[in-house]
């Protein structure tokens, strides 16, 4: 059978959701942001809640997320997305509200806003992209940078004594009674993408039921910041990031999983 006979509308299995705009993504080749954007939009499409969803994009590589996500969106200042989302959700409790934050945004400058939104049990969903580095500003050390990891502001490797320890915000947030669903995922392989999408769906379902804050951390690559080729950066992530940031559910239905 010729390939031309296969490529017909009736044989379509997968195409980019219309909830992603046609604008070319501003991310580096191989960056997990694009995949995370897409599965987030797929979930919103599958739940049929595009007209009920408001997204918040703060500062970071994803500062232009509103160019790519075809939902109503607001650009927030650095770190303040959970506060902005709180303002929206409190006035519109029936809408779906999510933030899309990087590690610098969520775990450094926005730590207070993140913890307090979680502690109040705001019914919002946080998508947290953790690549252990400040991508947009050119590869500086992030709160989640691994011990010994080289960045432009830790050129000899992160020294824990002088630079502090990597912050496991997701585990920390899972301890708070206000969080309902807390999980850590990745999007570097097809299997992981499918799992991450299920997690995002679960997070939005939890928001729908007003169960409290839901958080999906996505451990992702930053091949530019890590100074690697995309495929190699994903391999490095598996070998180095995952042992420190293990994948899987941390809190489900308000209950901590295993020995968290």
């Amino acid at each position: 059978m010729d390939i031309k006979d296969i490529i017909k509308p009736e044989n379509l299995v997968y195409q980019k959701t219309s909830l992603m705009t046609d604008k070319p993504l501003s991310y580096c080749p191989g960056c997990g942001h694009g995949t995370a954007h897409r599965i987030l939009m797929e979930v919103i499409e599958e739940m049929g809640i595009q007209s009920e969803t408001i997204g918040v994009a703060p500062v970071g590589c994803s500062v232009l997320a509103y160019d790519f996500m075809n939902v109503d969106m607001v650009g927030a200042s650095h770190g303040r997305a959970p506060a902005v989302a709180t303002g929206i959700k409190r006035c519109w409790p029936e809408k779906f509200v999510y933030t899309y934050q990087g590690d610098g945004d969520l775990a450094a400058i926005g730590t207070a806003e993140t913890i307090h939104a979680a502690n109040r049990g705001e019914n919002i969903t946080i998508i947290f992209i953790n690549n252990g580095i400040y991508g947009m500003t050119g590869g500086q050390m992030a709160p989640t940078t691994l011990p010994g990891m080289k960045t432009s502001t830790s050129p000899y490797g992160r020294d824990l004594k002088s630079m502090g320890n990597p912050l496991k915000m997701t585990e920390l947030l899972a301890q708070l009674p206000g969080t309902c669903y807390v999980t850590r995922q990745s999007v570097h392989s097809p299997r992981n993408v499918r799992r991450a999408k299920k997690a995002i769906r679960a997070a939005f379902e939890s928001q729908k039921e007003n169960k409290g804050l839901s958080l999906v951390e996505i451990v992702s690559n930053c091949n530019s910041g890590w100074k690697m080729e995309p495929v190699a950066s994903n391999e490095w992530m598996v070998d180095n990031m995952f042992p420190f940031y293990p994948l899987g559910d941390i809190k489900v239905d308000g209950k901590l999983v295993n020995n968290q």
């Binding site: 303002g87 409190r90 207070a112 806003e113």
Partner: peptide, 11 residues
């Protein structure tokens, strides 16, 4: 800081 950003979101 959070208060003014809540205002920003709601506004």
């Amino acid at each position: 800081v959070a208060a003014i950003n809540m205002v920003y979101g709601a506004a």
